[in-house]
Design a protein around this nucleic acid. Structure first.
Lengths: 333, 333
DNA sequence: TACGTTCTAGAAACCGGTTTCCGGACCATA
DNA sequence: TATGGTCCGGAAACCGGTTTCTAGAACGTA
């Protein structure tokens, strides 16, 4: 009925009490005479009074909202991330403001603006410039996820070093010679670290350094593009190490489309262990990372109003050996 | 420096003017003496004054934010949707609050709460109950996207009836007998309409009604699950019509994993025309729908402060015939 | 009966901008 | 010089809750 336009003072008037009492009742806090409380509650019920977020936010000096900044979302990874973050935020009664716009240059200004309407911000690695990040830390509580750790902000990330063990597995256990890396190390912190771990594994195994990575995005379609580049050229690799499962699936689709057999003709690995990984044939060797936990931990850190400013959480990952690398040949079919 | 804690009155004090003048300068609106303006601007610059969204929202009686309610996001469709929506919202200076939580029962309450902090809400079809929707319409401007059209709210949707032409193509042009439908008609309005178009095409072609749909979700992994169900049973279909590209890809992966050839052994079609559709081998016959336009149109309708309350926008779609249905046999490789 | 304690409820200030209203200054014209 | 119009800037009210402060009532105790 009444367009949500009813205010404390109006309710107070209707119930014959003061605004203060209405506020007390609506917050359910301090002791109020049962008779008055009842009267106020009836008016609230009758007129559908909802306290305005404006006024409340202004008075409480808190927005009741968290910001979430992405590099442009796509794929199951970000879906899981946003969903986990949101569920956790709802838990504490916070709303979620997302910023997934892509253009890097105006993003800084947009991000700063966003900081003005939230109590805390979760920022995905590689999304904002260092200058902007520093400014943000001065404005609101900031948690960087899947990015660099720093002194001014807290961070939550996963242990990407499992990529080292996975690479070692391909080099040593399977004895593959030529490995290719698919993913852009300059694109995100995660990929940077995975690429470095890939390099390190080569060094440890005393192999000559691999070729330059195939610098593509993280979507399935990027995997198909990478496959074209890798498989149609001279000297295709024996194994393709992908920055995530999405691109690995894309590479696999590209390989199969060319009549190649996985893993006999070419081995492929991913990173994430998303649902599809265990459903393809052969099923995908990958690294399991706790994406949802990454999101919920971040949200929890932001909602937590404790004084400590920073801290670095590192979530464990686990290598999952399946058919696509050559283990259990023949796959799951 | 100053934790964003600086207020109009403080700036006014420092610049030796009244808060009113500061407000005027910061909004850049009415005529102010250049000398005073300059003085105020310098103080603003020096102390990094940013007007609080609280106060502004309260005074202007507008949040400067739009809500976006999803059934739980995943896949390129929702990624595109949220991104398009956000870009358009930023255009008008609005922030975006997303609600992607899945549990239907508490969602109603959450959605109502969300309505209290935004100026308008975009609601994806099949996300909230009719009762909640009605209540929302009384609170804020509402646009339903990809859902039912109604008298109280505006709506933007795509022309799903192309599914009818696509089905006809399979039945008549290719002469396939047994068609299977993958997707849950009770899951979303889009799928409902596509399923009905699928049925209608059978009736028009005077074929006997198809079997019950394979009721799975809209993700790639759901397609793999559907493939298992369809292909491992007796009497597999000659063609599989999927509710979207994601599941179609999943079915295709499942089919290939079983050694089947597409389209010779089994034809497959999708809906969306996402990037992957043209990259697989054979490339995917599908229906192109303008997802980004769906999002931007919705956001534009919400930002538009014109008085007309409702309206129904129907965006055109286009059948895209490629290799996976049997046209251009041999595919793109 | 008088005094002190406790508890409740209303008045008023406050959160931080915006905007209306009004007085004063400046300029032009009679 | 007097008067009318225009423009500018400050005081104050307002947006809608919350919270502190205080007055008064009720109750218990000396």
């Amino acid at each position: 009925m009444s367009n949500g336009k009813i205010t404390v003072r109006r309710v107070a008037e209707l119930a014959g009490v003061s605004p203060a009492t209405v506020s007390r009742v609506s917050r359910g806090s301090t002791h109020v005479d049962p008779v008055l409380r009842e009267r106020v509650l009836r008016v609230i019920e009758e007129h559908g009074y909802k306290p305005s977020h404006f006024g409340r936010a202004l008075a409480e000096r808190r927005h009741g909202a968290l910001g979430l900044v992405f590099p442009g979302l796509s794929g199951p990874y970000f879906a899981e991330l946003i969903q986990g973050f949101e569920v956790q935020a709802l838990e504490t009664g916070d709303s979620v403001l997302v910023l997934a716009s892509h253009s890097r240059d105006d993003t800084d200004a947009t991000v700063i603006d966003l900081a003005g309407r939230v109590d805390g911000m979760a920022i995905h690695g590689g999304t904002v410039s260092d200058a902007a990040l520093e400014k943000l830390c001065g404005m609101v509580r900031v948690v960087v996820m899947a990015g660099d750790t720093g002194p001014a902000h807290a961070s939550v990330r996963v242990d990407n070093s499992s990529m080292r063990g996975l690479t070692r597995h391909l080099l040593v256990d399977h004895g593959y010679r030529r490995l290719a890396f698919v993913g852009n190390p300059d694109g995100s912190t995660d990929v940077t670290v995975r690429w470095e771990a890939f390099l390190a594994a080569h060094k440890t195994a005393r192999r000559k350094p691999p070729k330059e990575p195939v610098r593509v995005g993280l979507q399935q379609s990027d995997g198909v593009i990478a496959a074209k580049q890798l498989l149609d050229g001279d000297e295709p690799p024996e194994a393709v190490v992908c920055a995530n499962d999405e691109t690995a699936l894309g590479v696999m689709i590209g390989a199969m489309g060319r009549g190649l057999k996985v893993p006999d003709d070419i081995a492929i690995t991913g990173f994430d262990d998303m649902p599809m990984a265990s459903l393809v044939n052969p099923d995908l060797t990958t690294v399991r990372q706790p994406v949802r936990e990454l999101a919920t931990t971040t949200a929890r850190l932001l909602a937590d109003r404790s004084p400590d400013p920073a801290g670095a959480v590192l979530l464990p990952t686990e290598i999952v050996l399946r058919g696509s690398c050559g283990c259990r040949d023949g796959g799951g079919g």
